[in-house]
Computed example of a mutant assay.
Amino acid sequence: MGSHRRPARPGTDRSTRVTVLSAAAATAAAALAAAPAGAAPQLRPERPADTRAEIDRLYEEAERATEAYNDADERTDKLRAQVKRAKESVARGQERINGMRGELGALAQAQYREGGIDPALLLMLSSDPDGYLDRAAVLDRVTFRQAGELTDLQKAQRGLARERAEAGRALAELEKSRAVVARHKRTVEHKLATARRLLNSLTGKERRAYDRASRGGDRAGLPAPAGAVSSRAAAALAAARSAVGRPYVWGANGPSGFDCSGLTQWSYAQAGVGLPRTSQAQRHAGRQVSLSEVRPGDLVAYRDDASHIGMYVGDGQVVHAPYPGAPVRYDPVGMMPVSSVTRI
């Protein structure tokens, strides 16, 4: 979002590895902590400056919730794919076991039919004693081998069944976390409606002052970028520019609407580069550089938690999806505190 003017502590660059469940739980907990679900919408403060600050807070809260939702949604999709692969593997293993059981059953029946005759007598009665011995030896070996394979397949089936059960439990837990974030999203949407009412309550002069503040920032201190821009960065930048004017949409990653990280993910996808879904993950998707080294195509993350992200376009500006109600647009790179710059 481009409306935050409060200073923030410098962001850190640590990337923490966590399990799927603990990450989803932490995401939901952080989102809930940011804005309690039961919080009642506040009335318009008496001073326009306080009204603008309240609108800023609500927009910032909404974006954090959106990124939390995106993270849970992405993890759920990945786990669902894992469960699908596990089920397919189990089905293939079961099919192989059924085939082996059929073969062993046929062999058992054949042995049973011959089992009443003493092998020595069969040998004496055989017109081809050497051939009989060869067939008997082969039958024994095949039976032993197939019995071993059946045991192995049964073990594999049990292992796959355990994996499927574990994946199912994990998916259920993740779906619960996703539901928590979705409920939080609905709560923040209610707060956004309050923000829109607050915004509409401003006079024309106050509204213009708010818009100037939301699009303000320090454009000084940014030298001309050094070095050539890569072809993938140029392609991603062209895609991002083509999205200017399209609406901000909750949880969307194009092509008709975007949230902040959805825009950068979609833009780099047009250049053949896969980025993670959330702004927090995207900040670690490449090499981090200083703001003084920023080049067109670099990703610029904002706030100490990297809950907002845009793409640098040059001339001290970024292109980004600001917040609900504001379309994809250009704003000064210094519109809010920068936490990191990432070169893909």
Rank of each mutant, 00 (worst) to 15 (best):
4 H>E: 14
11 G>E: 07
14 R>Y: 13
17 R>L: 09
17 R>S: 13
25 A>D: 13
25 A>E: 13
33 A>G: 14
38 G>H: 05
38 G>P: 00
39 A>Y: 00
39 A>G: 02
43 L>C: 04
46 E>F: 11
46 E>M: 11
47 R>T: 15
48 P>H: 04
49 A>Y: 01
49 A>P: 01
59 Y>P: 02
71 D>C: 00
74 E>S: 15
74 E>L: 10
74 E>D: 15
75 R>L: 11
79 L>K: 04
85 R>E: 14
86 A>P: 00
89 S>P: 00
94 Q>A: 14
102 G>T: 13
104 L>M: 12
105 G>T: 10
105 G>K: 10
109 Q>M: 12
109 Q>C: 01
111 Q>T: 05
112 Y>G: 13
116 G>L: 10
120 A>H: 14
121 L>S: 10
122 L>C: 01
123 L>R: 09
123 L>A: 13
125 L>V: 15
126 S>Q: 01
128 D>A: 01
129 P>D: 05
131 G>R: 11
132 Y>F: 12
135 R>Y: 08
135 R>Q: 14
137 A>I: 11
140 D>E: 10
142 V>G: 01
142 V>F: 04
145 R>M: 12
145 R>V: 11
148 G>K: 10
153 L>P: 03
155 K>E: 07
159 G>W: 02
160 L>G: 00
160 L>C: 00
162 R>S: 08
163 E>Y: 03
165 A>V: 08
170 A>Y: 13
170 A>K: 09
174 L>R: 01
175 E>I: 09
181 V>T: 14
184 H>N: 06
190 H>K: 14
191 K>T: 10
193 A>H: 12
197 R>E: 14
201 S>K: 06
203 T>I: 06
208 R>P: 01
209 A>S: 14
211 D>V: 15
213 A>Q: 15
213 A>P: 06
218 D>C: 03
221 G>S: 07
222 L>D: 07
227 G>S: 11
228 A>E: 14
229 V>L: 05
231 S>M: 09
232 R>V: 12
233 A>E: 09
235 A>V: 00
237 L>Q: 01
242 S>D: 15
247 P>Q: 07
248 Y>A: 02
248 Y>T: 07
248 Y>K: 02
249 V>P: 00
253 N>T: 12
255 P>F: 06
256 S>R: 13
260 C>V: 04
264 T>S: 07
269 A>Q: 03
272 G>P: 04
272 G>K: 08
272 G>R: 06
272 G>W: 07
273 V>G: 06
275 L>T: 05
277 R>T: 07
278 T>W: 03
278 T>N: 06
278 T>V: 05
279 S>T: 06
286 G>R: 01
287 R>I: 09
291 L>V: 14
293 E>V: 06
293 E>L: 03
293 E>G: 02
294 V>E: 03
294 V>F: 03
295 R>T: 02
296 P>E: 02
297 G>E: 00
299 L>M: 02
301 A>C: 04
305 D>H: 08
306 A>M: 06
308 H>A: 08
311 M>G: 00
311 M>V: 08
313 V>Q: 11
318 V>Y: 03
320 H>V: 07
321 A>P: 09
321 A>G: 04
322 P>G: 05
327 P>D: 11
327 P>Q: 02
329 R>S: 15
331 D>S: 15
334 G>V: 03
336 M>I: 10
336 M>Q: 15
341 V>D: 07
341 V>N: 03
343 R>N: 08
